[in-house]
Design a protein around this nucleic acid. Structure first.
Length: 889
RNA sequence: GCGGGCGUGGUGGAAUUGGUAGACACGCAAGACUUAAAAUCUUGUUUCCGUAAGGAAGUGCCGGUUCAAUUCCGGCCGCCCGCACCA
């Protein structure tokens, strides 16, 4: 018997698949299925995470194909981004050359893994043809009011020299560089993602085939809260300020007591006479004892010009970091402006502070402080000795004795100390307060739904990205590049001698004529955030007929709309908010610009987030990391293969280059074959959990492949074409039933994304076949089932076995086995007998036996009689086909 | 602090959603084959008592519902992930 030779078999079948072009998707197919894995960044190497990700997608793609779907399963490259520029700086290579070389380097091993990919649709996002269409989309979005430009305080990454979106700042640090992010004021392009805030939030409910976790993460990120904006008007005389330069004293604000909002809005500069605060707790208004505004609030800025001390205070606030630790430790700091506003209900004067804990970016950048019912306000009030008046009484507390010590009360309760709100529940009071606000009788303001989500800043001061197709003219303003001039190509003659954006100092790129007046103008030198690239690539994959995509539009509307949404998307959880939220925005934008028919706006119907591939970390005595391939076992200890130094096994963590705990897929493919690598990453752990890479596990997978081959080898001589066997009895019938039951379970495992359970069933069927030595029709049938069930996981082995057994055509084209219902039932069923809930015996009964007969039979069971000795039977529960439980005492 | 998830043998994990807990795999042990090793095959493997038959305990801990709980409910403990001065 010959050993299974993956090194010979795998390339042979890959060539056949390739020659017959079997993985090409049929745009005209009637029964469509779009399977997609998050496309890779071309770092130059594929790693086990890729293998696992694409192996899962391949299971789905091949399984759906076997079930009669026309499957689209494309592959491409997320090719713009920082690493290419870093390589350019470090190794003095060109980002473009570096990227395309990496793509070539990764394509080979990816092809060796034998994925059922339609390579005819391959592209890289740095291809001119792709970013040309992205520029067209940008302009289309601009036309449709989904893109705008504004000066904004942005997150500046001082290491990468670029701006970051809020989503890209983690714990106050850049998501790539890890550098502490600074705040900087810049002119920036924004995608108006907030336009869809409500839809992006509510539609999450419709994404039933998304992990709950991702949906809540997005919901939290969008962060909807309902509340009210309340206008507070300044007290007379409270605005006495001294002009720092002239020393002149003057009244800054005068008292205004407006009756209605419209009167207020009639003022030329109403902003100067009121402060708007946002609150979700209007019910606590009677407990308000101060107003706090952000250091970045316009009033703070105005005061900084005129009053001593304010400037200093504001810059002090700016120094405090935004990291978790910094925020936790940061003391509540306030600056009393001396300004006062009037409390609407009590007519008291509330002091206005500039406070470091109020963020300009959320709500209105101003709050009213109710110390009794908000912890931050309480901390602040204690520090500056402001009144603490509780207005919500917790259930069971006495209003005369209830006091707030160092903990604010934020729970439910009954309103008191609040005149017209007294006696109401918190919920009721909020409702009444908002109604009052809308009527404008007692106080002024309006209902407000506030989102945490902010518009997506997309300007990046980097070279290796999609140029923003815009021209700045001193006379005509900001203009789009005319469609005929697209793409705005990235110039290739650039250098990275100095930090910053090479486009900005390029001799000719920047200087252009204004498309409107023809005078000298400046080209935008910022490029788009690379997350834009990955926000619509799946539509381009889908929207290209046959070999390649259109050059006059991003994608064929009809064809792309037929394929979309992606039926099954697979990737890492790390994209739960960033990529997956941006893509949801893009498809909505594309739809509303008329480029795509997608009613729901949702790009991904099903989402699966797979776990990581982990491995133990090895270290030598000097605490240097050691590659697993360099570790050998010697007796009880681990040694370095070359130095013989003792190696210590450490934590099991995600494979990463820096910790050297990586296993190169190429080595595994060469040593064991692609099928074994694929089988292993899918076999043991549930796909959403991490899988630990172990040598033993790989060997186990390899042994299994050989076992299957051995069974097929010893069977082949007797079989013609695989066919459904006729009647069987005895062991043959048992095997037949086993095989058909296995179909059910394997299929179910794939359907619910628990490949590990499918794998277990495949093992069991293989074991049963291994023991079955008769070369009869039942065996042929069971083998045919086994091979087809293995095919999505180990496609090369399956093809080889299929062909050896005389299967018709390619196994890839063979239909998924269907279980025969007659084979799923048994005439007799084994039922456990419990006495008082404890299993004591079991009996075999015919399936159609009545409850009473089963009970009678159970009572005659020897073990039952023995256990029941001396007890009285109180009750007998018979669940046909399942269990018998006798209650006795 | 808020939100989400998880906790089962030596290990990865299974359990048709309330019905025989530990499938399958790894590891380990014993045996067969072999001059020997590897490979392969067979058997055993939750723990405790027992040679065995058998019995007792057992799904993080405590309690509840139920004839029956890994599964449902309440309260703790521990771990992981995400967000966070969001008003």
């Amino acid at each position: 018997m010959s050993r299974y030779n993956a090194a010979e078999v795998e390339p042979r079948w890959q060539k056949i698949w390739n020659d017959q072009d079997v993985f090409r998707a049929d745009d005209k197919g009637a029964k469509k299925y779009y399977a997609l894995e998050m496309f890779p960044y071309p770092s130059g190497r594929i790693h086990m995470g890729h293998v696992r990700n694409y192996a899962m997608g391949d299971v789905i793609a091949r399984y759906k194909k076997a079930n009669g779907f026309d499957v689209l399963h494309p592959m491409g490259w997320d090719a713009f981004g920082m690493p290419a520029e870093n390589a350019a700086i470090e190794k003095n290579v060109h980002p473009k050359g570096w990227t395309y070389e990496n793509i070539d380097a990764m394509k080979a091993p990816l092809k060796r893994l034998g994925f059922a990919l339609d390579w005819s649709r391959e592209f890289a996002t740095c291809d001119e043809a792709y970013y040309k269409q992205q520029q067209a989309i940008f302009l289309k979005f601009w036309e449709n009011d989904l893109v705008y430009r504004k000066t904004a305080k942005v997150n500046w990454d001082p290491v990468d020299h670029t701006v970051l979106a809020n989503e890209q700042v983690i714990d106050g640090r850049g998501w790539r560089s890890g550098a502490l992010v600074e705040q900087k004021e810049l002119d920036q392009w924004f995608f108006k993602i907030t336009h869809y805030a409500e839809d992006l939030l509510t539609s999450l409910d419709s994404l039933e085939r998304w992990p709950e976790k991702v949906r809540t993460m997005q919901a939290n990120w969008i962060g909807r809260s309902e509340g009210a904006v309340i206008h507070f008007l300044f007290e007379s005389g409270s605005g006495q300020i001294v002009d720092v330069t002239t020393g002149e004293s003057k009244e800054f604000y005068e008292k205004k007591s407006y009756e209605t909002i419209s009167e207020l809005e009639g003022r030329e500069d109403p902003e100067n006479y009121k402060i708007d605060v946002f609150t979700t707790r209007p019910d606590t208004l009677y407990g308000a004892s101060f107003i706090a505004i952000s250091p970045d609030h316009p009033i703070s800025k105005l005061l900084a010009e005129h009053r001593t001390g304010v400037k200093g205070f504001i810059s002090e606030c700016a120094k405090i970091g935004t990291t978790e630790e910094a925020i936790e430790k940061a003391e509540k700091l306030g600056f009393d402006t001396g300004l006062k506003v009037q409390h609407w209900f009590t007519q008291e004067a509330l002091p206005v502070y500039i406070a470091n804990f109020v963020l300009m970016g959320y709500g209105t950048g101003a709050i009213f402080g109710c110390p009794a019912h908000d912890q931050r306000d309480l901390d602040f009030a204690r520090k500056y000795d402001l009144p603490v008046v509780p207005v919500v009484l917790p259930e069971g507390e006495d209003p005369n004795t209830f006091e707030i010590a160092n903990e604010a009360y934020i729970g439910d309760g009954t309103l008191y100390n609040s005149e017209f709100l007294n006696g109401m529940s918190k919920e009721q009071a909020i409702k009444v307060c908002i109604e009052e606000l809308e009527s404008g009788q007692r106080y002024q303001g309006h209902r407000k739904v506030q989102y945490r989500l902010r518009d997506w800043g997309v300007s990046r001061q980097r070279y290796w990205g999609c140029p923003i197709p815009v021209i700045h003219c001193d006379d005509c303003g900001v203009l789009p590049v005319p469609a005929a001039d697209l793409p705005v190509k990235l110039p290739e003659d650039i250098n990275f001698d100095k930090p910053g954006n090479p486009l900005d100092r390029h001799p000719t790129f920047k200087n252009v004529d204004c498309p409107s007046c023809g005078k000298a103008a400046r080209r935008e030198t910022d490029t788009l955030d690379t997350f834009a690239d990955s926000s619509w690539y799946f539509a381009r994959f889908a929207g290209g007929q046959g070999n390649g995509q259109p050059d006059d539009k991003p994608f064929d509307k009809k064809i792309a709309s037929d394929w979309l949404p992606v039926d099954q998307y697979i990737g890492g959880v790390e994209h739960a908010v960033l990529h997956l939220l941006y893509a949801r925005f893009f498809t909505r934008g594309l739809r509303d610009c008329g480029l795509l028919d997608l009613r729901s706006g949702e790009p991904f119907d099903g989402l699966f987030t797979q776990g990581m591939v982990t491995h133990a970390v090895f270290t030598d005595p000097d605490d240097n990391f050691v590659m697993p391939a360099d570790v050998i076992e010697d007796g009880n200890q681990l040694l370095h293969i070359d130095t013989r130094a003792i190696v210590t096994k450490g934590d099991i963590v995600k494979m990463s280059k820096s910790k050297k705990n990586v296993v190169d897929p190429n080595d595994i493919i060469e040593g064991y074959g692609a099928d074994v690598a694929r089988w292993f990453v899918l076999s043991d752990s549930p796909p959403d959990r991490d899988v630990e890479w172990t040598e033993a596990g790989v060997i186990g997978a390899w042994r299994f492949a050989n076992k299957v081959w051995a069974i097929v080898s010893e069977s082949q001589s007797d079989f013609g074409p695989l066919s459904i066997a006729g009647d069987a009895s005895g062991p043959a019938l048992d095997l037949k039933k086993h095989a058909h039951k296995a179909i059910e379970k394997i299929t179910h495992g794939i359907d619910v994304f628990r490949f590990n359970t499918s794998v277990a069933q495949i093992y069991e069927l293989t074991n049963a076949l291994g023991k079955y030595k008769t070369n009869d029709a039942a065996k042929a049938e069971a083998l045919g089932i086994l091979i087809r069930a293995i095919a999505p996981f180990m496609p090369h082995l399956a093809e080889e076995c299929w062909s050896k057994l005389g299967g018709e055509g390619l196994c890839y084209h063979a239909p998924w086995p269907v279980a025969d219902p007659d084979m799923l039932t048994e005439d007799a069923v084994t039922m456990p007998i419990q006495i008082n809930g404890k299993r004591r015996s079991e009996i075999s009964v015919p399936l159609d036996m009545s409850k009473d007969d089963i009970e009678a039979l159970a009572m005659k069971d020897e073990a039952v009689i023995r256990t029941l000795d001396g007890l009285t039977v109180r009750k007998v529960i018979v669940v046909p086909g399942r269990i018998i439980n006798i209650v006795a005492s």
